[in-house]
């Protein structure tokens, strides 16, 4: 029973990371470094909760979250793609705005409750011990995150628009010379990333908790950013990274609960230490292994006329 509980909570802790990182992966593959995942997530959490509160529908709430994340992403796109403002500075500023506005929007909802997102219930299957709750008893967000990864993988490596998107991220000048609309492709990738981050935030306030508090994303957006590097911009590795991180987060809680005699502060730092260690290991092996970051990542594109 304890194992089942742990696995279910690992999945729940990993899903928002996976959703947000999946969107950021597509954005970065197009060559845009959107550091504002945290801000878009918290906007998604606030607006998603508000939407679900008024409509009493998880689906409509999630759509509100997606729209809020995409809206903030559109602001980012207008500044960095349209006006070629520095991507890093813009994103940090918009993250702070996102945290602020979400607090404002969410202030009236703190302490309110909504109906949590329903879990799948298949007659017979969901009642199975262990397998039932882990595989057939999750909420829609979890299945959605897995499907999203598979869809992104298919899109990037099996479709022509996916190839064009990777090309834009690798060398925007060449893509422009070949006649591809660099800025439009990047805009779409940024909006997609924003939508995913918004969905991840909505998951937190609609299914994970389910309630809203200011700052409830608690740095998950930053971890999602690290996960993309961790996964070396590959979708399947992203799943491994998100679940590894989720597992460390949950396990350290249980370890604390079991009274292992290690200071809780150190235990709480474990997920972050794990991230750093893996990043170091990756950069050590990557030199010889190929596959690096998209070459135009974070470089603004200004066509000459």
């Amino acid at each position: 029973m304890l194992l089942e509980l742990i696995v279910v909570s690992v999945i729940a802790a990993s899903t928002p990371l996976l959703l947000a990182a999946a969107g950021e992966l597509v954005t970065e593959r197009a060559g845009v470094l959107n550091l504002g995942v945290e801000g878009m997530m918290i906007m998604g959490a606030a607006c998603g909760f508000a939407g679900a509160y008024f409509t009493d529908s998880t689906l409509l709430g999630a759509l509100c979250g997606i729209a809020a994340g995409a809206a903030l992403a559109a602001m980012f796109a207008a500044l960095t793609l349209g006006l070629a403002v520095n991507q890093v500075a813009t994103r940090l500023a918009l993250t702070i705005i996102g945290i602020g506005i979400s607090g404002l929007i969410g202030a009236g909802f703190v302490g309110e409750r909504i109906t949590p997102a329903p879990h799948l219930a298949l007659p017979g299957l969901s009642a199975l011990p262990f397998v039932g709750s882990v595989l057939f008893g999750q909420d829609a967000f979890v299945y959605c995150s897995v499907l999203l990864i598979l869809a992104i993988r298919w899109f990037l490596y099996r479709t022509r628009p996916g190839l064009v998107l990777r090309a834009v991220g690798d060398n925007h000048a060449s893509a422009h010379a070949l006649g591809y609309p660099v800025l439009r492709i990047r805009l779409l990738a940024v909006l997609f990333g924003g939508g995913c981050a918004g969905l991840a935030g909505a998951y937190l306030s609609l299914a994970y908790t389910p309630f809203f508090t200011a700052g409830m994303t608690a740095g998950r957006g930053w971890i999602a950013l690290a996960l993309v590097v961790f996964a070396s911009w590959r979708p399947l590795r992203l799943v491994a990274g998100a679940y590894l991180f989720g597992a460390v987060t949950i396990l350290q809680l249980h370890a604390q609960g079991a009274g292992m005699g290690i200071t809780p502060q150190l235990m709480a730092a474990l997920p972050y230490l794990a991230t750093i260690l893996v990043l170091v290991a990756i950069s050590g092996t990557r030199r010889m292994a190929g596959s690096t970051a998209p070459a135009s990542l974070g470089v603004p594109f200004v066509p000459d006329r």
Partner: peptide
């Protein structure tokens, strides 16, 4: 200057 994509 080659208009190629290094990682493709």
């Amino acid at each position: 200057h080659f208009s190629l994509f290094e990682n493709l």
